Each structure stands twice: as C-alpha cells, then as structure tokens.
Simulated scan of single mutants.
Amino acid sequence: MNPAIQERLETARHLLGSYDILSEKTAQAESAWLITILVHGRSEERYIQQARRDVRDDAPSGVREWLTGLPIGPAEPIIVLWSDSRSGIRATYGGVVAAYDELWYPSSDDVWIRATSGDWLLELCHEEVFRFFKRERV
C-alpha cells in the first residue's frame, strides 16, 4: 500500500469504518480489469455513463448529497482503487461517501469505486469530474 494512501486511510478511519487493504497484486489485477473494460471493451458487457457531475465549485456536503443520490445502498460492498498508486481497499459505499474528501484529492488522484458485483463503476477524476456508469450486458 502506498504510504500516502495509508496515511489518508488512517485519517479517515473514523468516517470510513472498517475496511480491508487489497494486496498490491490484487490492486494491479483490479486496475487491469478496469483498463480492459473501459479502454479495450469486452464483447459480453459494457458500461454506460448514467450520471456526471463537475464538483469543482461544490462544497463537500453537496458532493456527498450527489453521491448519496446515486442508486447505491450505503451498506453495499465496494472496491476502491487508486490505480496510479497500485493501492486499493474493500469497504462499504456509505463509509466511502462519508470520507470521500479524505480519500480523493482533486488535481492529483484518479479514484475508481466499483461494486464487488461489477454492476456499476464510479470515477472520481483528478479533473474534479465524477462519472457514474452502469453495466449493460450485451
């Protein structure tokens, strides 16, 4: 785990709740899966953008409200990836929403959040744009 990401997790522990750190090998495999899906595509499934939000001028409370409004339950198990740092965790969506501003830093981080079921993806882009995708089976 990248030490800077580890430090953020410790800072956010009271908001995030329990989480499990992914091994570097698992984080790399998850990142490779994302690249396969989003860049190269797969014939049997694709992800369609359902929502987009420019958060540049939003207060953290407004961002949390938008994240909470997505069709994702707070107890849903998720995987969070900092693909450039080869780091990731398993947590719950509600915990990540509560701690998002401790876990994602604008202008430096691309964070991917996905359902462990693979049914949806959420991108927190370093350009301060969040995008939500749902899986469509072809």
Rank of each mutant, 00 (worst) to 15 (best):
A4N: 12
I5H: 11
I5L: 12
I5A: 14
Q6N: 10
L9H: 03
T11V: 14
A12F: 00
A12R: 02
R13K: 14
R13H: 09
H14W: 04
H14G: 11
G17L: 07
G17W: 01
G17E: 07
D20N: 08
D20I: 08
K25C: 04
K25R: 11
T26G: 01
T26P: 02
A27D: 04
Q28I: 09
Q28T: 07
Q28S: 10
A32I: 05
A32K: 12
W33F: 11
I35D: 13
T36R: 15
L38P: 04
L38V: 06
H40D: 10
E44W: 13
E44Q: 12
E44V: 10
Q49H: 05
Q49P: 10
R52G: 06
R52H: 11
R52W: 01
R53C: 06
D54P: 00
V55T: 07
V55G: 01
V55S: 02
S61Y: 13
E65S: 06
W66P: 01
L67K: 02
T68D: 13
T68Q: 14
G69C: 05
L70K: 01
I72K: 09
A75L: 15
E76A: 12
P77F: 08
I79E: 11
S85P: 02
S85Q: 15
S85W: 14
R90Y: 14
G94I: 05
A98R: 07
A99G: 11
A99R: 04
L103P: 04
P106Q: 01
S107G: 02
S108A: 13
S108I: 15
D110H: 11
D110R: 07
V111C: 09
V111R: 00
I113M: 15
R114N: 12
A115Q: 08
T116Q: 15
S117M: 09
D119E: 15
E123M: 08
E123G: 11
H126V: 04
H126L: 08
E127G: 04
E128I: 00
E128Q: 11
R131H: 08
R131Y: 06
R131C: 10
E136C: 13
E136N: 10
R137D: 08
V138D: 11
